[in-house]
Nucleic acid binder design. Structure first.
Length: 572
DNA sequence: GCCGTTTTCGGCCCGACTGTTTTCAGTCG
């Protein structure tokens, strides 16, 4: 899959053109094509072979030809051409905050800056400051940002959404307590439930901007204030070192601002162009016809005014949702309150932090009607996997708890290792005695993963296949698995595939979940929880399903207890 | 360079904040 490298090369062309002060729209066209290809769910080589690259929105005849050239020869002459007189080390300097193409272009042209060392040199010898429009403050800012840049050395750092959730909740809670604040909402990729976020956007409804900004910048969670104006304040959050932008807007504009800052950028551009064609202007303050505001209080009002169905934040990516909304053909997505139970949980029996009783109580509080316990199996010694005796003891405890609690049904299960030969980790008799069996690969990643998974799927006692690709976001690529083949097998055997909602897995991801759904495979969102934060992780899993455009009917654990038990009934 | 509810040319989303400036350019989102 060459999507990423093609996107990278197009993005570099965009940067190089920007440094040369080329036509702004041409630059944007390359950037847009790069992003579209990066986010593409399918393999670009497949698209190139089977259909036309111009089917990708943002890719026209020109770029298609260049991409094709690259796919066939491994080279792109346009790239060679535009970077001939621009060193690659210069392009990466654009990742330094507040150092844009105009300034860097001038530095290159006037002072011959080619890399980070050159940049530092011209700052030290004061030649930087002599360029037009640059003074002491600019230099100071850039110097500060160079330090940040060096720390992460050009890598684009993104935070896992699960890492930032607690902080976002806490800061929002404090904002709600500020006087004259009537509403607080997250926006940006956080609201769109992307698996990672680059920064955080928070929106506040208030008529006293100054007071809110003053209170906010004084929060103990704020490490540093980057900028602070009437409507916008940017800070760095203590601990995480993530940037947070706070916007304060009046009531009549809240919907417009929420929509605008939720994005995605492509979605917004789409909406605004659409509005323009209808003689309307959309900005973060509202929808305007000849300077008269005609909508803006809520997002619902705005979409309605534009003659569109309401588009849920999770699918605002300009991947066809605007067209569907125009035709009134958007699917009704899985709702955050639709889930009735969770099967993948760990307790103190293996590597979890809580007792079964604690998980049960919390699940009842949450209104769930079933909870499955699935600790690790005996081979998973690193995770304190259960011996046959431990497992029997656990089952006895579950029997007792089921008698004690009548609001919820506790199900006996196991997260059973799929061994190198594709067999499961306990004897048939043990597996038979359980309510469900989750099969999972935890070791020997290089050993015939596809065959092992498929053999496990043939096992009559296996109920669910856990984290099917094994990826850990931004840490590990995942198993060397032919997922298409595994999906076909799961479909044939009628087995359930897991959407593992644990925040560093989110596996299946939105694209693969969509593929599985299209093949008619039953899916289940599981938290893989090791503590009581399982309900946070469940939200992330639901977010993935929504981003994959899945309706509630695609997800097994939206079923009532009775129907759910029917659905997990195994063949054997 | 892309694209079409003014469709093969002529547009292309829009505004806030900052710094260096007396009106604006650069950067960011």
């Amino acid at each position: 899959m060459k999507n990423h490298e093609v996107a990278e090369i197009l993005s570099k062309i965009a940067k190089a053109l920007a440094l040369k002060d080329e036509n702004f729209f041409k630059i944007r066209a390359y950037s847009r094509a790069a992003r579209a290809i990066k986010d593409l769910p399918e393999d670009i080589e497949e698209i190139s072979k089977k259909e036309s690259l111009t089917n990708i929105p943002g890719v026209g005849e020109g770029i298609a030809k260049k991409v094709k050239e690259y796919l066939e020869t491994g080279k792109m002459s346009k790239y060679e051409e535009v970077t001939r007189d621009i060193p690659k080390s210069l392009l990466t300097l654009l990742d330094i905050r507040d150092l844009g193409s105009k300034t860097l272009g001038a530095l290159h042209k006037e002072l011959g800056v080619e890399n980070l060392d050159d940049l530092k040199k011209v700052i030290e010898d004061n030649s930087f400051q002599k360029l037009e429009g640059l003074g002491d403050k600019s230099v100071e800012k850039i110097m500060e940002n160079i330090k940040v840049y060096e720390k992460r050395m050009g890598k684009e750092h993104r935070f896992l959404i699960g890492e930032v959730m607690a902080t976002v909740d806490q800061i929002m809670k404090k904002l709600k307590e500020v006087d004259l604040v009537s509403r607080v909402a997250p926006a940006g990729s956080y609201r769109r439930m992307k698996e990672t976020v680059g920064d955080l956007d928070i929106l506040v409804e208030s008529n006293d901007n100054r007071k809110v900004m003053k209170k906010f910048t004084a929060f103990s969670e704020v490490k540093k204030v980057l900028e602070s104006g009437e409507t916008k304040t940017s800070v760095v959050v203590e601990g995480l070192d993530i940037q947070m932008d706070l916007r304060v807007v009046p009531k009549e504009s809240f919907g417009a601002a929420l929509m605008y800052f939720t994005g995605s950028k492509d979605h917004n551009v789409r909406i605004r162009s659409l509005a323009l064609k209808r003689g309307l202007k959309v900005n973060e303050y509202g929808v305007f016809r000849n300077d008269t505001m005609v909508a803006g209080k809520t997002e619902e009002e705005i979409y309605k005014f534009l003659n569109l169905q309401f588009i849920p934040p999770e699918i605002r990516e300009d991947r066809g949702e605007v067209e569907k909304a125009m035709e009134g053909q958007l699917p009704k997505l899985l709702g955050y309150g639709d889930i009735k139970g969770n099967l993948h949980t760990h307790t103190r029996y293996s590597d979890g932090e809580n007792t079964i009783r604690e998980l049960v109580k919390k699940s009842i509080e949450f209104g769930y009607s079933y909870l499955g316990i699935s600790d690790h199996s005996k081979t998973a010694s690193y995770a304190n996997g259960l011996s046959v005796n431990d497992l029997k003891k656990q089952c006895d405890e579950i029997d007792k708890l089921n008698k004690e609690f009548d609001k919820i049904r506790i199900l006996k299960g196991i997260e059973c290792d799929i061994l190198p030969d594709g067999s499961l980790d306990y004897d048939e008799n043990i597996l038979k005695s359980l309510d469900f069996v989750i099969g999972a690969i935890h070791s020997n990643f290089k050993k015939k993963v596809t065959q092992r998974m498929e053999k496990a799927l043939e096992n009559p006692y296996l109920t669910i296949l856990a984290h099917p690709t094994g990826r850990l976001i931004s840490k590990r690529e995942g198993y060397d698995v032919d997922l298409g083949s595994v999906l076909d097998k799961a479909s044939k055997e009628g087995k359930i595939l897991e959407i593992n909602a644990y925040y560093d897995r989110l596996d299946l991801d939105e694209h693969n979940a969509r593929e599985a759904y299209k093949k008619g495979i039953k899916l289940m969102i599981n938290t893989d929880a090791h503590n009581l934060r399982m309900f946070d992780w469940m939200i992330l899993g639901i977010g993935i399903a929504r981003r994959a455009w899945l309706p509630s009917s695609a997800i097994v654990n939206t079923l009532t207890l009775k129907d759910f038990l029917k659905a997990i009934k195994r063949n054997g």
